[in-house]
Design a protein around this nucleic acid. Structure first.
Length: 220
DNA sequence: GCGACAG
DNA sequence: ATCTTGTCGC
């Protein structure tokens, strides 16, 4: 699909942080996603094998989770893993995979953070600017922020707060399992992000689209 | 200075 | 993320 707000990826860590500070002003993280209008959801994931990175984008129907399209891309890993700069490591391969996409998903689910990031621009927010479509960050572990104790039951969720600001939610998608760190990427808000993630997690801890993308990216 | 730190 | 066997629990 069409990619907007492109910019070069070849940056030093210091330049990358400066770019994040510029881009963060363009992110919209207070707009609800109309769930009743969501029919196609994309799961996005990247696996790294030595010096090579492989991206997979799996589009499924919602609800139902029937696979509609799978796009993959592979290329050299261009940037080291630095907490807070994940998009500069995974962005290049994702760009290539997104360009191959024929269908246009109503929302994208990312393996990583959205606004639940030190500078409020995790990979879901960053790529959301490129895609100009609703995106949601689904993290398996915490990058920043704190939260109150969370009930063990599926569906339980509490605010994720950083420096006095609510940046997302800690959500239990399955009873008695580690929670997920959900945050809006771009063109979404916290409540609807939580609702959609719960709606995409009928059985397992990870949302169905992300599980499928994880499998597609992991099979080198 | 010290601890934390998505994937 | 990746390296890896068995094992606890529904």
């Amino acid at each position: 699909m069409e990619l907007n707000r492109r910019h070069p990826w070849e940056l030093t860590p210091v330049e990358a942080v400066a770019l994040q500070r510029e881009l963060r002003t363009e992110i919209i993280a207070d707009r609800p996603i109309n769930l009743s209008a969501v029919h196609l959801v994309a799961g996005v994931d990247v696996s790294v094998k030595h010096e090579r990175s492989r991206a997979a984008v799996v589009i499924v129907t919602y609800p139902g989770f029937l696979v509609v399209e799978i796009a993959t891309a592979e290329r050299p890993t261009p940037f080291p893993y630095i907490p807070g700069l994940l998009s500069f490591r995974e962005g290049p391969v994702l760009e290539e995979a997104f360009e191959k996409l024929k269908a246009e998903p109503d929302v994208f689910l990312f393996d990583g953070m959205g606004t639940a990031h030190p500078r409020r621009i995790g990979i879901a927010s960053h790529m959301g600017l490129w895609l100009q479509r609703p995106t949601i960050g689904v993290g398996k572990t915490r990058l920043c922020g704190t939260n109150a104790p969370l009930a063990e039951e599926k569906g339980a969720h509490v605010p994720l707060v950083d420096r006095g600001e609510t940046i997302g939610a800690v959500v239990r998608t399955r009873t008695a399992t580690h929670p997920l760190f959900i945050s809006p990427g771009h063109l979404a808000d916290i409540p609807s992000a939580v609702d959609l993630v719960m709606g995409c997690s009928p059985k397992f801890r990870l949302p169905e689209p992300i599980r499928l993308a994880h499998n597609a990216a992991g099979a080198f």
